[in-house]
Write a protein that binds this DNA or RNA. Structure first.
Length: 924
RNA sequence: GGGCGAAUAGCUCAGCCGGUUAGAGCGCCUGUCUUACACACAGGAAGUCGGGGGUUCGAAUCCCUCUUCGCCCACCA
């Protein structure tokens, strides 16, 4: 006996829970995910830096499947580059999330019966900071459970002192460049959050509504009236005019006349404005400048007053310039209730002409979904057009690419029509606007340092009450987290610009586009060269998973049930470029079976190989003479090379050519994580496990010690490389197995092991020969299965290679192996055996016969052969037609033609075999 | 209203810069506890590649059109 006693202790059951936490702790302890700035070749080191900044989750968030997806994608890419030898930094952090966090804390104190106004600004901010301190950032801990290999020593927070410094610097610079200004206009206002919102934060939602037609009587002749159409009758209290198109024949003569505003009873003019579309509604538009952005513009054009008739909370109330417009019974009434009341009042007064159903887009607050109220107010804006220009050019020129490609058009379209960005929020949680007003004359002063006195007159100042939009700190993320505005910061010099930005398309405008603008505005360069937009996790009805809808999947639950690797593999394998991932929250087992099964498979391959290979030293493959390699060895090494090449091709180039833009042919290539995963899986399962491992079972325990060592060397090498290929997707299980490889050096990790490369040897005829062996095995198995031969039963199989062919040698030499894999006694002969035998024809024209005394159903075999032949002839006919077509021969690529010719030869040989078979089986 | 995308096996999806007999996972059928794995192994069934038209020697792949879904953008009250 030469068997080596199993010295490797491998649990028979793969138990992720038992290994994951411990492995993560060991990685952490070894500091393998800490990036060393000094190693970056930008500061004199010898490594190419590779950097991803993590989209910071809200500081109060808890992990959901969207985070799981996003961070898994990032982790796969980061781990790949780390193994490929880059100095890799994945920079994590959280976002203070102004409105979102403030809402959470407001709800919290509401439970105590208080509002933020009861507490006062200072106390409320302190309370929120304390809340964040205590419960915030939990999500970063949760990310470790899914294997995120971020550099936690660099964890950032948008409201930290360092990042706040960056925010202030950015604000003041833009202010000094004249790109930040205070504007008086109608903005989106959330009556629940009590703050203004940017255009992006006020999301459209198609809502069924009504179009009310109201008649406004002429002041000079109450018997005549104009019919005005509106979806928001309550705003009529703030009407200051009605507008018609100047060319509209119907109303031309009325321009300049006055109407009586129903309910309010005041006179308002009829003005002409080209904004009005004569074809829509009645062609008459009421103008409510303080409560509609378009009306505001018209109001400005016609120098109209702008009465405010609503409170910030959305209650009807006289405000600025609105003396007595709101009737007593409507004061303090909610805007939607007021709508109904006003409709009733109009109806009672005979002023309501008709009501139509009308579908229209209504803006809602992206944080609390309240219907947004247009509101006239003073806000700070960023002038975007100058910032957008370089950001637009960067994508157009290929300096920055967006994957999938189609999002580039969306990006360009948005930037081309960009509008100024309202950055002030009437909140308390956030970066306070660094502007101080002189108490004496109100002159604003933007300042990097807090001002105590007016720089002009030395008098007292007061700071602007508002805070900045959360995204005003996020857009600096790639800069601020690396130390900007300190231009000499080592991290900034070593790691900026970063490489890939990975996020969901939802925040392309909120965040991605603005980061690119900030990169150019503050550092003169793009913050990253690739934007990778991944899909969304949806349920089986294709509804986006969300906690509020109850159709979400808790990643930690999945980790607990099947392990992080199973979850990661399932997500990555199921996600085509930019495609959504569909999962069934009601059936986690089925949803994640793919990953769980593969993890178990991998574990078992390892268990078998490691126990059978034993712990004695294994010869490095490089030291094994080529001559000693068997066909199976050569084949599996060739398949490994193909797998590595496929993985590399799927992952693509990691960065554009040095100092250059993306080349057109590479611009939209790479980062096909599902293809990479599939290539690795196919090698591991369908090739390594199904064929190679099966084929060497005899050798590992065989008598030939030298051959055993060759098999051990090849097996360990192939498995080692397989583990490396899979590590980015399945970090835990691969590490656990890799640590057990014979000869493993303590303190080394697969997570740091070099990424596999394709061996120099390429085409290997011996490797191709093994395919013939596989073919023969399959053929014999098929015959056995067709005839229901019990798997345990030994039968006699005969292989008949074409005369004089190389196949003869191959099959003769591998007959034992074919026999072992098919549980048959295999011999190779020159002719078909006598007696009843079932036959299959192999791809190269070889034939496989299985002797089945008393079992062969001649009729069945005959029909089978006839069908097979008919199918083949049909294919062959098409092939021959193609080959006799002159256009084809003239135009098709030579290699295509040659491939078709080879195919024809093969098929013809097979056809002849089949024809003989038919003849012998079916009789003359 | 403008722009974009998708429609391929029962389900979820690859393939699509035209050229093997269109693939994978899950599910399904048959058999098997073959000394790593039943979360497995072996074999198998299953697709007129959404409909119609066109270009081409050749179309799942390119063009047009229709249908159905989805996404993004948008100041028609």
């Amino acid at each position: 006996m030469t068997t080596s006693a199993p010295t490797t202790d491998i649990p028979s059951q793969y138990d992720p829970a038992a290994i994951e936490q411990e492995l993560y702790a060991r990685w952490q302890e070894a500091g393998v995910y800490h990036a060393h700035a000094e190693r970056s070749n930008r500061v004199g080191g010898d490594r190419e830096p590779f950097v991803i900044v993590m989209p910071p989750p809200n500081v109060t968030a808890i992990l959901h499947v969207g985070h799981g997806l996003n961070n898994t994608v990032q982790d796969v890419i980061v781990r790949w580059r780390r193994m490929a030898g880059d100095e890799t930094l994945w920079l994590p952090g959280t976002d203070h999330a102004g409105i979102a966090t403030q809402n959470v804390v407001e709800k919290l104190i509401a439970g105590e019966g208080k509002t933020r106004f009861d507490l006062g600004r200072e106390a409320f901010v302190a309370r929120t900071a304390q809340f964040v301190e205590e419960t915030g950032g939990a999500i970063l801990g949760q990310l470790r459970a899914i294997g995120a290999s971020a550099d936690w020593t660099r964890t950032a927070y948008t409201l930290s002192p360092e990042l706040s410094l960056a925010v202030r610097e950015a604000f003041v610079r833009l202010y000094e460049r004249g790109l930040i200004y205070k504007g008086h206009r109608v903005i989106h206002w959330c009556p629940r959050c009590l703050t203004s919102l940017s255009d992006e934060e006020a999301e459209f939602e198609d809502t069924p509504g009504k179009l009310y037609h109201i008649s406004y009587p002429l002041a000079s002749d109450p018997s005549r009236s104009l019919s005005v159409a509106t979806t928001r009758p309550e705003t009529m209290l703030g009407d200051v005019a009605v507008a018609v198109h100047p060319e509209d024949e119907r109303y031309r003569d009325l321009i300049g006349q006055k109407l009586v505003l129903p309910i309010v009873g005041i006179e308002i003019p009829i003005v002409a404005d080209t904004y009005v579309d004569p074809a829509f509604g009645t062609g008459v538009v009421k103008i409510t400048p303080a409560h509609d952005p378009n009306d505001f513009e018209m109001g400005r054009r016609h120098a109209l007053p702008m009465p405010v008739i609503m409170t910030p909370t959305g209650l009807m109330q006289d405000g600025v310039d609105s003396a007595g417009r709101v009737p007593a019974e409507l004061r303090g009434v909610d805007r939607f209730e007021a709508r109904d009341t006003i409709v009733e009042m109009l109806r009672a007064a005979g002023r309501l002409e008709k009501v139509e159903n009308h579908q229209h887009a209504v803006r809602h607050c992206y944080r609390c979904d309240t219907v947004v109220e247009p509101r006239l107010s003073d806000q700070w804006f960023v002038k975007m057009e100058p910032l957008a220009r370089p950001a637009l050019e960067a994508v157009r020129s290929g300096e920055v690419r967006i994957l999938p490609e189609r999002w580039e058009a969306v990006y360009v379209n948005w930037l081309e029509g960009i509008r100024d960005w309202n950055i002030s929020r009437q909140l308390w949680w956030g970066h306070r606007i660094p502007v101080w007003y002189c108490e004496k004359d109100g002159t604003p002063h933007a300042s990097r340092a807090d001002l105590v006195v007016c720089p002009d007159c030395g008098g007292p100042v007061r700071q602007d009450e508002d805070v900045l939009d959360t995204w005003f700190s996020s857009w600096l993320w790639p800069l601020s987290t690396l130390g900007w505005p300190d231009e000499q910061a080592l991290d900034l010099r070593a790691f900026y610009p970063t490489d890939v930005l990975i996020t969901a398309p939802e925040i392309l405008f909120f965040w991605v586009a603005r980061m690119i603008m900030a990169g150019f505005a503050f550092a003169g360069r793009t913050p990253f060269h690739t934007v990778y937009l991944h899909g969304t996790a949806r349920d089986t009805n294709h509804v986006k998973m969300s906690k509020s809808l109850g159709n979400g999947i808790d990643p930690l639950e999945v980790v607990k049930l099947y392990g992080a690797d199973a979850m990661r593999y399932t997500l990555i394998a199921g996600m085509g470029m930019g495609a959504d991932v569909i999962l069934d929250p009601k059936d986690l087992e089925r949803s994640f079976a793919t990953g769980r099964n593969f993890a178990t498979k991998l574990w078992n391959i390892g268990r078998f190989l490691l126990t059978n290979v034993g712990a004695e030293p294994v010869t490095p493959l490089a030291e094994v003479s080529d001559a000693r390699l068997t066909r199976a060895d050569r084949w599996v090494l060739a398949r490994l090379d193909a797998a590595v090449a496929d993985c590399d091709a799927a992952l693509g180039p990691s960065r554009p050519p040095k100092g250059d833009r993306w080349r057109p042919e590479e611009r939209f290539a790479g980062l096909r994580l599902n293809e990479y995963t599939e290539a690795a899986r196919r090698f591991v399962w369908s090739e390594l496990a199904d064929w190679y491992v099966e084929s060497i079972k005899g050798r590992l325990t065989g008598e030939d010690a030298a051959d055993r060592d060759v098999a051990r060397a090849v097996a360990v090498h192939a498995f080692d490389m397989a583990l490396r290929l899979l590590h980015p997707v399945m970090p835990f299980i691969t590490e656990a197995l890799w640590q057990r490889l014979p000869g493993h050096v303590d303190g080394t990790f697969v997570t740091n092991a070099p990424w596999p490369t394709v061996r120099a040897t390429t085409a290997d005829a011996a490797a191709a020969d093994f395919d013939l062996v596989r073919d023969a095995v399959v053929a014999v198995r098929q015959i056995r299965s067709d005839y229901n031969v019990p798997p345990g039963k030994q039968v006699e199989a005969t292989l008949v290679p074409p005369r004089g062919a190389r196949a003869a040698t191959v099959l003769r030499e591998e007959a034992t192996l074919v026999g072992r894999l098919t549980r048959s006694a295999v011999r190779v002969a020159d002719a078909a055996p006598d007696g009843a035998a079932a036959q299959k024809v192999l791809a190269d024209g070889s034939e496989a016969y299985v002797m089945l005394a008393g079992l062969v159903d001649v009729e069945k075999e005959c029909k089978r052969a006839r069908d097979e032949l008919a199918g083949l002839e049909k294919q062959l006919a098409g092939l021959r037609q193609r080959l006799s077509n002159e256009s084809f021969l003239a135009r098709a690529k030579p290699e295509v033609v040659e491939a078709e010719r080879a195919k024809e030869r093969e098929w013809t040989a097979r056809g002849e075999q089949l024809a003989r078979k038919v003849a012998s089986l079916c009789g003359a």
